[in-house]
Design a protein around this nucleic acid. Structure first.
Lengths: 338, 338
DNA sequence: TCGATTCGCCGAATCGATTCGACTCTCCTG
DNA sequence: CAGGAGAGTCGAATCGATTCGGCGAATCGA
């Protein structure tokens, strides 16, 4: 069933059917009605491939996610969900492409087969060859996250550097003198993962500015790792009274380790972090954290992408988000020196 | 850049380029080499839309997920991840389509615009109009989950009825006499969500068979709801000593409620469930549960779909999974009657 | 009443691939 | 040496939509 059959049954030419559907040229009401009747009867829908071929656009965007075999963090899941939602509202479909590891074929297919009109890239490194690849291809794209050359592309990002510095300031204000940064997993940070690196520098800067003793560690992105990580920290770092973290997936484990050491939060130990709001709230106890509006970020990313697609020459826009810290009760005054 | 340009530069016709690429007719080694050289130089890739139009297939599958605004459970996330992985291995792209609520346009677009060669459907209801829609459309599809008429389609599913019955049996063996089933959220169950309904009947059957006192409740899919739910149960159901559940997202909250009532697990109270393995393990304490192999299920679903696409006339295949219960320490002998 | 607009519609070209039939060689066989 | 087979290639049709130029009829103003 194609546009020709509709045309035939309605007694008009194919072009008239097309114009009736798109409205790009006037069609008489009577003709339009007849065409619509046939379409409704047969349940006709234009063939997406044919349309894409002629129009040169697919009405589809690509979403490049971390290898799916690695569990997505709650925040990443939030990005995916909001991107899919926002795209659906704009009548765009979303093609999912895991990147990294064995899946580069998938990424390559999406980029070079002209299967999508644009791409949203997640989990960006400071040096990211996917960005290079995309720039070279001429395909519009937007980052959730940014590289070390922020001007080279449009993006939406969280200002981890500032946020972690704020966490440190907050903890310092409460009298904590020795603070640890619990980062994301070591591989990621070593590979130049933006948030990880920026958290490092924000932490170092703030710790120096306040004259504190700072310790930095990496930690795999799950609860057991968080537990192990804090156990090690407590053993190796006497006098440690607070943690700042961007590793939301590990927080539950951190709580557990503290609890097993008999340390209460926030009485004996404070934790502040950067996390998706609903996650921070659902933790027990709810985490004092800068609430990352993952939902909003996905929507903004889609907006930027749609603009880039409509006019590739438009200057790159950037959205840097630094939400305030919500005090939820996992931070308190430093305990009296033992 | 298209196949014509490649042909021109290589000094052959377009059909020869096509045959050199697909190997569907012999091409002399020398010609093949020349063509390949041009392709490598220009980085040519065939246009996916043109190919899809001519071939009548898109090399893309649709994955219909629950509305993304609702958080995906860990198990659902596991399905998505494994489907994407398996599809990528088969050189298939995955088009994501949220269904339900305001997103039915997206579902409709995917199904009727012939954008995909087949569909994998998640979160199936006993009566599911999407299944009706898909059957009517003639598009090959596979369910992760099944309707009330299991023969009508190929699927991969978990045998919730049996698994919950096993949980009950296990708890009964340990001496528990009054057991609650904590189901998924009420809306879902009311809408005829398969796992929810099958858990209900499996629970009812097992409870009756063992002469126990059973209580059934629904609970929203998150930790706070789990906490509230167990608080209510404890208040309203004196003598309750165990819970069986399929609501993995609520388990952490259940633990919390018990803890706050001063009840230890498994000393005072037992919990057994059905959950994705890695989730059951990462809970604290790790949950005694039937471990759902989410990774494997996605792979199997893709396999079935590929078969259906290759030969739509092939009889529907079904994979019903009933993994054994892994004892992890949240179940123990019923406490002596208070 | 005549010429110029405007409206509504049609026919044909086009997007970029695949594929079928046919053509030209070369080689082998009887 | 004629004729058939097969290898290698080409030209043209095709998939299903969009879109441009143009054509006839109705409308309008002078």
């Amino acid at each position: 069933m194609n546009i020709g059959e509709i045309a035939e049954r309605a007694g008009v030419s194919r072009s008239t059917v097309s114009y009736a559907l798109t409205g790009k040229r006037p069609v008489s009401p009577e003709t339009k009605r007849r065409i619509q009747a046939v379409i409704d009867e047969l349940g006709y829908r234009p063939n997406a491939a044919a349309r894409a071929l002629k129009e040169g656009r697919t009405r589809t965007i690509g979403l490049v996610i971390p290898p799916a075999s690695r569990r997505l963090t709650d925040m990443q899941l939030g990005f995916v969900a909001s991107v899919v939602d926002a795209a659906a509202r704009a009548d765009l479909d979303v093609l999912l492409s895991p990147s990294g590891g064995e899946h580069d074929r998938s990424f390559e297919r999406v980029v070079t087969g002209r299967r999508v009109d644009g791409v949203i890239l997640m989990e960006i490194r400071l040096e990211d060859e996917r960005v290079t690849r995309l720039r070279h291809s001429g395909l519009p794209f937007v980052g959730i996250g940014r590289t070390g050359q922020p001007e080279e592309m449009p993006w939406v990002d969280i200002d981890y550097e500032t946020l972690i510095a704020r966490c440190v300031d907050h903890l310092a204000d409460l009298g904590h003198r020795k603070i640890a940064l619990v980062n994301r997993n070591a591989d990621l940070v070593a590979a130049g993962y933006g948030p990880g690196r920026r958290a490092q520098s924000g932490f170092a800067r703030a710790v120096a500015a306040r004259g504190l003793h700072g310790v930095q560690v990496c930690c795999a992105d799950d609860a057991p790792a968080g537990q192990a990580c804090v156990e090690e920290l407590l053993a190796a770092q006497p006098g440690l009274t607070a943690i700042a973290t961007i590793n939301e997936a590990a927080v539950a484990g951190m709580y557990r380790a503290l609890e097993q050491r008999g340390l209460t939060v926030p009485g004996d130990f404070s934790i502040a972090g950067v996390a998706a709001r609903h996650w921070a709230e659902s933790l027990h106890p709810p985490l004092t954290a800068a609430d990352v509006p993952a939902d909003e970020m996905g929507v903004r990313a889609v907006e930027l992408l749609i603009q880039s697609i409509a006019d590739p020459a438009v200057p790159h826009r950037h959205v840097l988000i630094a939400p305030p810290i919500s005090l939820r009760g996992t931070t308190g005054p430093a305990p009296a020196r033992a």
